[in-house]
């Protein structure tokens, strides 16, 4: 049990349900995928998403508003970043480039696509999870602090 000492299964499940309900609302009311990488690229004018600009901008604006709301209600929300600015920038560049090349991230492929049983999304999710695991293992091996 000690390996799971820091896990938050109930909070994770509850927050996950909120994320799934949000994606369900986007699908059933607005008729589209709640894919954060595609909508974010649309907002800054570098994406190929067909979402109306106002829809993409409103969804993206909602993300920090939602976390701010929880921070206000709970007192605070933990977000512990790696200390190294170059690492943060390398990670950001890879996430931006990779999500555009691979047409989706954890929300679009992971939540929306996997629940649709899309083979593309299942393959993408297994691949980025595998790459993430390998990256963390390699950083641990070479002593790079994450």
């Amino acid at each position: 049990m000690s390996v799971f000492a820091h896990a938050m299964p109930l909070a994770g499940l509850a927050g996950g349900l909120m994320i799934g309900l949000s994606a369900a609302l986007m699908l059933l009311a607005d008729g589209r995928i709640a894919g954060v990488s595609g909508l974010a690229a649309r907002v800054v004018g570098v994406g190929l998403s067909s979402a109306p600009y106002s829809v993409a901008a409103a969804f993206i604006l909602g993300l920090p508003l939602g976390s701010m709301l929880v921070a206000a209600l709970q007192g605070h929300v933990v977000a512990c970043f790696p200390g190294s600015a170059p690492l943060i920038m390398i990670g950001g560049l890879a996430v931006g480039f990779g999500t555009q090349l691979g047409a989706g991230c954890t929300s679009g492929h992971g939540v929306c696509g996997m629940s649709r049983l899309s083979v593309r999304s299942i393959a993408a999710t297994l691949t980025f999870m595998g790459a993430g695991v390998a990256t963390v293992a390699a950083m641990r091996c070479f002593g790079v602090a994450g």
């Binding site: 954060v36 990488s37 974010a40 993206i60 993300l63 920090p64 508003l65 939602g66 976390s67 701010m68 921070a71 929300v77 977000a79 970043f81 790696p82 690492l87 943060i88 390398i90 990670g91 950001g92 560049l93 890879a94 996430v95 931006g96 480039f97 990779g98 999500t99 555009q100 090349l101 691979g102 047409a103 991230c105 954890t106 929300s107 492929h109 393959a123 993408a124 999710t125 691949t127 980025f128 999870m129 595998g130 790459a131 993430g132 695991v133 390998a134 990256t135 963390v136 950083m139 994450g146």
Partner: peptide, 27 residues
Amino acid sequence: LGGAVIFGIGWGVVGLCPGPAIADLAI
């Protein structure tokens, strides 16, 4: 798959994907 590999590397380096990164702008 290439895009997923590149994304996964970035995700592993920092621990952030696009949704949490944007939500953390307020945190």
